[in-house]
Simulated assay, not measured.
Amino acid sequence: MQSSSMTGNKPSASTQAYLDIKEIKEGVVVLKDGSLRAVLVVSSVNFSLKSGEEQNALIATYQNFLNSLEFPIQILMQSRKLDIHSYLDKLRSVMQQQTNELLRLQTQEYIEYVGKLIEFASIMNKTFYVIIPLIAGGGKTGFMSKIMNLLSPAREISVKQTDFDKSREELMKRVSQVAGAMGGMSLKSLVLSTEELVELMYNSYNLNTASPIKIKSIGDLDLSPGE
């Protein structure tokens, strides 16, 4: 067999080389240009069940929120398949322990109904995210600073960490502003942690291999978008 050096073949580049993401740390996505991103997961609201007055109030609040922003945001909706087999197994266990014959039959019928339902259609869960950016500053490092960084690499690392801390603090102020606005629309929001960000990125770039969301109890299976 010919070696790669003789055939002129070059090793394929890692997928990460084609992504804009440099690293994920402290609940923040760091891009290769130095920009930062924070991600809020936001609950939903059943708009159609609101009265006309409530709908108008929501629209006005959302409009005021958008007009108050001094920075761009992205809204992402991600759909993932729900795996409710564990939930059905738990129901079967409850059914076997049920002493009331009527309740046992009703539970069995419900299990059969849901089982047939998932044979013909996938039950999907929609999750909503708000992505909040902080664009990297355009300042350039001076000549003397470059010399000092070459002489003391530890100093450069310290400066970079200090810059990150300042940028992250500014980003979190934006996150608080957006989260407060979400609360004004009766929407709950949470900032994704580092681990949750890694999972979100993996699932976003690996749609075919992403694991379905496993549901073990009816409390986890919230089919209504909200009140």
Rank of each mutant, 00 (worst) to 15 (best):
L102S: 01
I147P: 02
A179I: 01
Q98H: 01
M182H: 02
M95C: 08
G183L: 07
A136T: 10
V114E: 11
G183R: 09
G184N: 12
F128T: 13
M95K: 13
A154M: 04
T107A: 03
E109S: 11
E109K: 15
I131E: 14
D163G: 00
T99M: 04
K166N: 05
L134R: 13
M124A: 02
K126G: 01
G184I: 07
D163H: 10
D165R: 09
E101I: 03
V191H: 05
G142D: 14
V178M: 06
V130R: 08
V191P: 03
G137W: 10
A154V: 03
L187Q: 05
S186V: 03
K116F: 09
S176N: 09
Y129E: 11
S158R: 08
V178W: 04
M95V: 12
T99V: 02
Y110T: 05
M144V: 05
Q106P: 02
L190E: 13
Y113M: 13
M148E: 11
M124R: 13
V175L: 03
K166Y: 03
L134P: 07
L117G: 04
M144D: 07
M144T: 06
Q177D: 06
M182G: 02
N125I: 02
I157R: 13
I131V: 14
M182L: 07
S189N: 03
L150S: 08
Q108L: 14
A136Y: 14
N100S: 03
I147Y: 05
I147T: 06
A121W: 09
G139N: 13
I135V: 12
S122R: 13
K188F: 01
E170K: 13
L190R: 15
A136R: 14
T107E: 03
Y129V: 07
G180E: 07
E170Y: 11
I131F: 06
Q161G: 00
F143A: 11
V175E: 02
F128N: 14
M124E: 11
T162H: 11
